[in-house]
Structure formats: structure tokens, C-alpha cells
Nucleic acid binder design. Structure first.
Lengths: 333, 333
DNA sequence: CGCTGCCCATGAAAGGTTTCACGTCCTGGC
DNA sequence: GCCAGGACGTGAAACCTTTCATGGGCAGCG
């Protein structure tokens, strides 16, 4: 802002107290609704405070109480459309509880994740909601001492919010099997993520039972495909492929199309996550829907609880997923 | 975190000083690289600090210096894929300058915007990057006293980062005209946003010059179309439509398709923003590309400058846009 | 009428850091 | 051999708030 040369310092509590002709302590009590203040005095103080446009200095408050009223949200990659809606819900839910959120995007790098956490704890966040990049890495050590809930991964010792990934993998596989597919390929998410492994393992197990797993490859959570994934697709061995994420599914569909094949006529694809794009894509993507909003809200709730009751045993809540059937799967006659 | 019952308090500067056998002042100087401290002493202090795992208490620091090392980012709607990439760049750029970012999502509501700002200034953010919902509303008053740069809107008195919307509108119209379209409709963004008006006005002016503006309607920045927009589309009076945002374009294409018409064979569509979906959509969307990343980086830079030089005259920087031609426009023969 | 207790209100300390103003000691120049 | 001044280091105040311990006054009870 190029307006005022001299930033008009905000009124301090001391000034309010003076203006109201009461002590600092009374002013503080009146404003925080604590302590014992006469009804008349309280109202008077409040009025004066309002006139002066008093806003408490959070830094000072934080120094006394150790509570900053801020929570940190650590996400891998805002660019993956899965995360913004998560962030949105977290931000809102936090706001209704009076918290602001520091959002950091770790860009998929473990060092960034480390730095992000440091920055956050330096700022004295009261709690952290963390969507880890990988299961290993410089995990637990970092967040020592700050209430934390972990999304997606079942990290020991933390409160955890997850979806039933295994069930999702199974659902995807069964859907394909039921549609008459036999030769099925699997593109799972990064090795490092247990949630990705769970999806894949369940899918693979199910496929093996009643069908034929023709290949299994890994890919980052990204539109861009690794060479080995592209090759698998090019082998044309599968009539259907299960992917570990919608983003991967969309990447795969692009590649399939570039091979001159059609989805779903030549090959069927099922995704995971049900990101907004899924239904906008042509063909609309059959995928596994996770209740992201609910999960985000649950994370905030869990964090609030954890912040006020540090001693409690950890909890783990698992949300159900469901298959939403759209146009990317062909049923074989 | 369900781990430690007793949060292991972090070491304080005083403790570091004592452990190192120096005064508080020296410790402070050593750690901040300020003041005059002997080389040997400094190293010693740093070593001790590291051993104790000392991390400065930002709240206390903030109280002294008035600087929190945090900036606020106020965005209308994370759900619009235009914003996450913006947010991502801002967060990263801020981080390299040592700032953390409070992200708030105002959900398109002016009251939320108000509350968000309050929360932010209460937290004592050093600066704010603000993407306003509308030009009017409870604007300038709110951010009084906090360095602010505004994105997208040319709010008087603030540093401003924009794209050349008018040029974008013109480009879009010319592209259609050059492709032989005559009867053109325009779906612009919300009235309240001057950036939306600029796009539309330039487009309309250009269309009028050499073609025929068959209708002009407004729509929120959303996939969902207002009734009047749907009606306009249903009139089938236009062979091409210019939209104020890719999101609107995609919504329009869906509707057009639901009418049994084809994009681009029956009607051509051009978007604005070049969000990630644009090129993934089928057909890939011809649109106006804004250099979001550059703009976000510029915003952070402008804010940093503003924060250290409050007196300077305001600046306004306007980025060029360009048309990216894809598959949603048919050239008439 | 005096005392017990309660209600209100206040002074003051504490919390972790930065930074000003000052002191000590040593070095080098004359 | 002295003194000026630089280099290094320190004590203490200040930032704004919360909260503990304390005190004054008044009502009601005995």
C-alpha cells in the first residue's frame, strides 16, 4: 500500500485501559471475558476499545500463552487438483474455530518438507495437518512437540485420517472384472507412499483371483508418464487399466489416445480420487470417490481435539470410498 | 501427535547465552549476524545454539520488531483451478525470501473477505497479497496500515499486478473474426469485476467493428451457467462464443454439447486464463494465456519491495497475454 | 456494631527477544 | 610511554499481553 507514510500504529491495550480509566488488568479481563469485572465497567471498556479500533496483538498474546491461533497445513502439491479442495475445506473449518492456516506446498521434495516444517514450528503454530510425501523420509522427528494429524498415511504415533484405499483398489478391480475384462494392467502411485501401495495391492490381488494381471508399473502423481508406463501401455496387452490416481488416469488416457486407440472402446481406464476433472474429461472418468471434504473436516476436528487434550490415545479414522461409474469403462459383451 | 505428554520446551536464547557463557545480547547478535561479536565467540555461540537445538521464538521476535515473517494471501476460490498455481508460486517465492504465507480463501463472499482480512492483520502479517472479489465492497479501509499488493484489479492507492485484459479480449475476438466467424456471443465474468469488464468490452468493441455481436451475458467464474447464459446458448444465434474465463468456457462447452451441438464444428469457443484443464479438455481449448506464475512472482517481489520502502510511489505492472490456439475454434472456409 | 467473605479492581511480574548506551581492554601511532 | 579510538562485550529497557496475588469496600450475618 502506497498510502500512509506513517503506519498509524494500532491501539494497544494499555491505551484502551488509560482511555477507559481502568487498569491494564481490568481491560484485559474485560476483553477476554475472563476474570471478574463489573458489568458496567466491562461494557464501558468494550465500548472504548471499539472506538479506538483496538485489536489484540497476537504476537504478544502468543508470547504469554504459547498459543498463536494458527495451524499449519503441509501439502505435497497444490498443482494436483486433489489438494486445493482439501485445502479449502481445511481453511474454512479452521476459520470457524478461530484459526488461521499457514499453507505450505512442499513440491514433492523431502527437503522442502523439512524446511516447511521448520518454518511452521518457528512461527509457533498450535498444530499441524500434514499430508506426507512418503512414509519414510525425515518424518516424525520434525514435528516433535506440535500436535499433528496426518492425512493419508498411517504414521505410527500420530492421529490419522485415511480412506479405505484397499477397498478402493478392490472396487476398481471388481468393476472391471464384472465388466468382462480379463487382461488388466495396473499403474500405481509412487512406491514410497503406502496409500499407493495399498490401492495397488488390493487391486492386484483381486485381479489375480479372477483375471490376469498383465503388467504393473509405477508412476508419480502426475499427468506425465514414466517411460516404463508408456511402454506398458504401448504393449497393448491390457484391455483395461487401473490407476492409482485420476491424474495418472488422465495422463494414461492421453497416451492411449495418442497411440490411436480409444477409451473406452479399446481400453478401459479407472482412476482414483474423483478429482473435479474426472467428470469433465471426455470420456468422463470412472473412478473411486474419496470424501475429501469430510476427510479435511475430520482432520481439523481431530487436530482441535488433539490440541486441547494432548494426552489422549491416538485415533485413526478411515473413510469409506465408493466407485463412481462413468464413461471410461467399456463393458464387454 | 499422541506422543509426548510433556512438550519438551524449546531452548530459549537466554539458555543458549548461559550455556555459552556469554550475555544475552551477544547471543542475540551472534545469531542474527548483527552487532559486533568476535569471530571465535560467534562460532562458539552458534555451536552451542545448534547443540541445544535453539530455534528463535518468532512471537517474541515479532513483538520486538513488529515483523512476523508472515504474509497473507487472500484468494477468492481455491476451487477455481486458476488459483492454486498462483498460490503455489506465491508460497514458494515467499519462502525463498524467508516468509511463510497465511492463505485464506474467501469463498466469493465479501463478509468472508472482511473476516479474512481481520484475522490476517490480527496475526500481524507483514504484508498482504490480495486478489479481490469485486472492485467495490469493503475494500481499502480494511487493509489500512499493512503493505498490500493487489492482483487483477486496479485498485487506487495500491501496488497492482495485472494482465493486459483488454488486449486479451481483443485477441480473442480477432482470432474468431480471422477464422471467418461473424455472429459472435460473449459470456463475460461477473459485472462487479473490472477485469472481467475490460475483457468483455475490448472483445465486444472488436466484434462490433467487423462482425456481429449477437448477445452478451454474464456468468460467475464457475462451471455452472446462469439461466440467461444457457438461454443465449440455446438460441443458437452465434457460431462462436468468447468467454471471460476458461471455467466458463468449459461450462459452456458442456452445455453446447448437451444441446446436441459440437465444439468446434457447430460453435467455436475461446476461453481466458489458460488454466491447466484447458489443454486437457476435449476439444482442447483455445484461450488467452496469462503468465500466472510470473504475475505471482511479481506480486511477491512487489510486496517485498513495498514492505521495506513504504514511502515509494505505487507501481502498477501489466503483463502481456497471448492467444494460444488449440482445437475449440473452427476456421470457416 | 463488628467481622467474615465476596465482588471488583489493581499492581506487578513474566514471557523471549532486540537494541541502545555504555564500559573494558587492547592496539597502534606519536 | 601515553593516549585515542576501535573492537568486543554487557546490562537493561522496551515491546504487549496475561495472570497471580493482593487490597479495598461493602453487604449481610451474628
Amino acid at each position: 500500500m502506497a498510502k500512509s507514510e506513517d503506519p498509524p500504529r494500532r491501539a494497544t491495550l494499555k491505551e484502551v485501559a488509560k482511555a477507559a480509566g481502568v487498569s491494564l488488568a481490568s481491560a484485559s479481563y474485560a476483553i477476554n471475558g475472563a476474570g471478574s469485572v463489573g458489568e458496567a465497567t466491562r461494557e464501558h471498556i468494550l465500548k472504548v476499545a471499539a472506538e479506538l479500533g483496538y485489536r489484540p496483538n497476537q504476537s504478544a498474546k502468543a508470547m504469554k500463552t504459547g498459543k498463536t491461533g494458527a495451524i499449519g497445513l503441509i501439502l505435497p502439491d497444490l498443482t494436483n487438483p486433489f489438494f486445493p479442495s482439501l485445502a479449502q475445506v481445511v481453511i474454512q473449518a479452521a476459520r470457524v474455530h478461530g484459526y488461521s492456516v499457514f499453507l505450505t506446498d512442499t513440491e514433492g521434495s523431502a527437503e522442502e518438507e523439512q524446511r516447511a516444517v521448520n518454518l511452521l514450528v518457528d512461527h509457533g503454530v498450535d498444530g499441524v495437518i500434514w499430508f506426507p510425501i512418503a512414509d519414510d523420509g525425515p518424518v516424525g522427528k520434525l514435528i516433535e512437540g506440535v500436535p499433528t494429524v496426518v492425512l493419508d498415511r498411517n504414521l505410527p504415533g500420530y492421529d490419522v485420517i485415511q480412506a479405505d484405499y484397499a477397498d478402493g483398489g478392490r472396487l476398481a478391480a471388481e468393476h472391471l472384472l464384472a465388466a468382462g475384462h480379463v487382461n488388466i494392467g495396473v499403474i500405481s502411485g509412487p512406491h514410497a507412499a503406502s496409500s499407493a501401495r495399498q490401492r495397488a495391492e488390493a487391486a492386484i490381488a483381486t485381479v489375480r483371483e479372477r483375471g490376469n494381471l498383465v503388467w504393473h508399473v509405477h508412476n508419480a502423481y502426475s499427468l506425465d508418464l514414466e517411460p516404463e508406463v508408456a511402454q506398458a501401455l504401448e504393449s497393448r496387452a491390457a484391455t483395461a487399466v487401473i490407476t492409482g490416481a485420476d491424474l495418472i488416469a488422465i495422463g494414461a488416457m492421453r497416451h492411449i489416445r495418442s497411440l490411436g486407440q480409444s477409451v473406452p472402446d479399446d481400453v478401459s481406464v479407472v482412476g482414483f480420487d474423483d478429482i473435479p476433472w474426472a467428470q469433465l474429461h471426455t470420456p468422463a472418468l470412472t473412478t473411486i470417490d474419496m470424501p475429501v471434504e469430510d476427510m479435511a473436516a475430520a482432520a481439523v476436528e481431530a487436530l482441535i481435539r488433539r490440541m486441547s487434550a494432548r494426552g489422549e490415545p491416538r485415533r485413526r479414522v478411515v473413510f469409506n470410498v465408493e466407485l463412481v461409474s462413468r464413461d471410461s469403462v467399456r463393458v464387454l459383451t
